[in-house]
Design a protein around this nucleic acid. Structure first.
Lengths: 247, 247
DNA sequence: CGCTCTCTTGAGCCACGTCAAAGGGTGTGG
DNA sequence: CCACACCCTTTGACGTGGCTCAAGAGAGCG
């Protein structure tokens, strides 16, 4: 649906659907600097968005001030499809974002009138509903290692990266974003990353640039086989070193 | 939007929106016995549903067989609004369910052509998108006590119960459902319930019938003040009993 | 070069998961 | 009507994974 050029530029490659493109065609492109909000929790939910470049985080604040990151919206994803009259969360640019906007009533009018209605549904891009589903699956994979590994695969998938030896995953969000998304602390996230690195599953060129070294192992960890990871401090195979060999 | 009569019968009281009623009017009512699936994960997502009676659980299965309950759909809620071409989860009746069904293309056609489009959005009932949001807020409340307390309030809200002293919350789902929804084990859920009971916050007429005794305290626990709960086994205020009073 | 902010690493502790057993409610068959 | 079996829930004992508190290591910037 979309991919990343070798230069790291995000680009729509094949329009997911002509009808969708028609809906968004001709609208002016809006840009948001990193840290700027596209809308706030509680704003009137009048518009639907198609993000063409960059990354958004969706979050809510709990009464006591804790932040909950509900999901991320990547280039090519849509936002605002819920029928709710108010946005349920704040959408904020993580990196520089370009997007197009269309009013909700126009959007639903167009898609329902489209002759290729069925085809559009098949081809339509990811939206925040999927994002929510994704996150829940991550959250309920219990072990922290699983969540972090699954998150890496998740980012890879949604930035068009193949997960193969040597490919690089770019985490443009901070450890805090990851932690608030995964329901962990930043310390635990960091430790899991270190553990993956210590096991040779990934290497880190910087804290944001992850290189996949053992793709298969990464997938195994993500799907629950975290026994295969050696805990960081483990002295290699310290069985009770056979004191008094013969009785 | 809907409420429960004193006899415990679920009933639509004021139609949330005339346009919505028009869409679903005249459709035959389908019924599902407890345990029956309305649709399965992966089925073609052709229809939108309005549940008029009973409770649905939405879930997915992880590769290793663990079940993840993604949300609950109460009477008055809608289901199937996502634009995805396949349902992302299985929807299963928890109690006896009555619902009406309309095809997705008809649904979107009707709502977009409705002259009261804006008004409908304002009045439209909860759907699985909201359900997903709800759950995430629950999941990311760290402490188990918080999650369970918040869950009780959540059920109360969506069954039309006011949360006040003496009001009863009916949990028609099992502890296993609650656990798979909250990301806890059934033992932990049970312990939290017992802890709330031991602290006089709630009383249990049966495992499914919860009476609210201290509504304010329940809200406090739900929003993170779990310090106010005395751990179950605590001997009342055992300060180091002033041995050797005067030095 | 010093300041700040983010990320990493370490040490200790507690909440929650695991394993195990007992309690209670419901249905079925004698 | 009771006896038994089954299932769901509750309670207990114990071990551990992840949170807390704290310090150190880089990286960006004036």
């Amino acid at each position: 649906m979309h991919t990343i050029t070798s230069a790291g530029q995000m680009k729509m490659v094949k329009a997911h659907d002509e009808a969708l493109d028609t809906i968004f065609a001709g609208r002016s492109i809006e840009t948001f600097q990193a840290g700027r909000a596209v809308f706030w929790e509680g704003d009137a939910a009048d518009d639907v968005f198609l993000v063409t470049q960059g990354l958004l985080r969706l979050y809510r604040l709990l009464p006591d001030g804790r932040r909950v990151v509900l999901g991320f919206i990547f280039a090519g994803d849509m936002l605002g499809l819920s029928l709710q009259d108010e946005y349920l969360f704040t959408a904020e640019a993580v990196s520089h974002v370009r997007l197009v906007r269309v009013s909700k009533s126009q959007f639903y009018g167009r898609i329902s009138q489209s002759p290729q209605f069925g085809a559009m549904l098949t081809a339509h891009p990811r939206d925040e509903m999927c994002a929510a589903q994704d996150q829940m699956m991550l959250l309920l994979r219990r072990a922290a290692d699983e969540r972090v590994a699954a998150f890496l695969l998740f980012v890879a998938e949604h930035t068009g990266r193949a997960v193969e030896k040597g490919s690089e995953i770019l985490l443009c969000m901070s450890r805090t974003d990851m932690a608030d998304y995964l329901g962990l602390t930043i310390e635990t996230v960091s430790r899991c990353m270190s553990k993956l690195r210590a096991n040779g599953v990934i290497s880190l060129e910087s804290s944001a640039r992850v290189r996949v070294e053992k793709p298969q192992m990464l997938e195994q960890v993500a799907s629950g086989d975290d026994d295969i990871l050696v805990p960081m401090m483990a002295k290699p195979a310290r069985r009770p070193v056979a004191v008094l060999q013969a009785a």
